[in-house]
């Protein structure tokens, strides 16, 4: 039996230590949900801000993005987008790819691509100067 079928007393000892729960499943699921909430709020907020302060020139556009608050919230948006994408891609690969080596290869590939994108986006958004 692959799933623990311990006696009641076994699971009693095991269950006393709630804080040590690894929570891999819960944490990734929660991160996916929380990142989605932030992205939704950012997209709506940024759209409203952009419509009410539409930059008239490239210089104004750069000034908008050079604003610390905008730069940080936008960078956070893209980083959370990549985290969200990582969890989603990981789920897809876990669902469909059952060959260990291929799965490792794909996860590594996706991981590096997303990490690279993260560094690049951060570099672009946090170095906007006027």
């Amino acid at each position: 039996m692959c799933v623990g079928r311990g006696t009641a007393s076994d699971s009693y000892r095991h269950g006393g230590d709630v804080m040590s729960r690894k929570s891999i499943g819960l944490r990734t699921w929660l991160m996916q949900r929380l990142s989605a909430v932030y992205m939704m709020l950012f997209v709506v907020g940024f759209a409203i801000y952009f419509i009410s302060n539409t930059p008239a020139s490239f210089l104004e556009w750069r000034m908008m993005m050079a604003n610390t608050f905008v730069a940080i919230t936008a960078t956070l948006f893209f980083l959370l987008l990549l985290v969200h994408a990582w969890i989603g891609m990981r789920d897809v690969i876990m669902d469909y790819i059952h060959i260990d080596g291929l799965r490792l290869l794909l996860l590594t590939g996706v991981g590096f691509a997303l990490l690279g994108a993260a560094i690049w986006i951060t570099k672009i958004l946090l170095t906007v100067t006027v």
Partner: peptide, 20 residues
């Protein structure tokens, strides 16, 4: 009376969280 243990046992990436 085994709420914690039941929840603990489902705490991996598969048993519960493959539900999309």
């Amino acid at each position: 009376q085994a709420t914690d243990e039941r929840l603990d046992e489902m705490e991996d990436a598969y048993k519960l969280y493959r539900c999309h």
